[in-house]
Amino acid sequence: MTVQSVAVVSVPVSDQDRAKAFYVDKLGLKLVREDDSIPGLRWIQVAPDGGGTALTLVDWFEQMPPGSVQGLVLRTDDLDADYKTFSANGVPFDGPPEQQPWATEAVLHDPDGNMIVLQQA
């Protein structure tokens, strides 16, 4: 057996509704699944429109406090346009896109302070 892909990455948040609104309404990810069939656990999963690795917005991992994710990379094909759109929608960036040796990147933060790198290769 061989690992084929990364299916889900957990992103710790303090308020799942606020996080869902941010990732769906501000970043444009799609709501893939929302399920509260297990008592005390609400599963909210979002993903890019084209599929790929999904994010689960979690509030139940004691060892993963909200805001503890640093360096989650989301790829885009038009960083300048996304930076302008997201900034206009109130997404907080550390600064404008910067060219790095490996790609052009801009760093943003979700409402809990999780650091996300928006990257155009």
Results as ranks from 00 to 15, higher is better:
V6A: 01
A81N: 11
M64D: 06
A47K: 03
D25C: 12
L79N: 04
V3P: 01
T85K: 13
V69G: 11
Q4H: 12
P66D: 03
G40T: 09
V69T: 15
D36G: 08
V107W: 06
D35N: 14
Q70Y: 13
Q16H: 10
D78K: 05
P12M: 03
D59P: 02
W102H: 06
S68F: 13
V91M: 07
Y83E: 14
V6M: 02
P111K: 12
L31R: 04
V58P: 09
G51K: 10
T104E: 12
L31P: 07
L79F: 03
T56E: 15
L57R: 00
Q63N: 08
V46E: 03
D17L: 03
G95Y: 11
A54K: 09
G51S: 10
A106L: 06
A106G: 09
G71D: 09
T53L: 04
P66A: 04
R75G: 09
P97E: 10
S68L: 12
Y83M: 14
A121M: 13
T56V: 14
M64V: 07
V32T: 08
D80K: 11
Q63C: 04
G40M: 08
L118Q: 02
G50F: 05
E98W: 14
D112Y: 05
Q99E: 15
G67T: 07
D36A: 08
P65M: 09
R18E: 02
R42Y: 01
F93W: 10
I116T: 06
A106M: 09
S10A: 02
A21M: 06
L57I: 01
V46G: 04
A19T: 10
D17P: 05
Y23V: 11
Y83I: 12
A21G: 09
D112W: 03
P97Y: 13
D17R: 05
T104W: 08
P39D: 14
D15T: 08
D15L: 04
S68V: 08
R42N: 02
P66R: 03
V11R: 00
P97H: 14
W102R: 04
Y83H: 15
D112V: 04
E62L: 03
L118E: 00
S14Q: 03
R42V: 00
V117Y: 13
S68P: 11
F93D: 04
I116Y: 04
L29K: 05
Y83D: 14
V73S: 05
V6F: 01
P92E: 14
M64P: 07
E105Y: 08
T76E: 00
G51C: 10
G95M: 13
M115Y: 12
Y23Q: 10
G28P: 07
P39Y: 11
V6Q: 00
V13Y: 01
T2E: 11
L72I: 02
D112A: 06
P97V: 11
D80I: 10
D110V: 05
K20Y: 11
G95D: 14
M115E: 15
P12E: 03
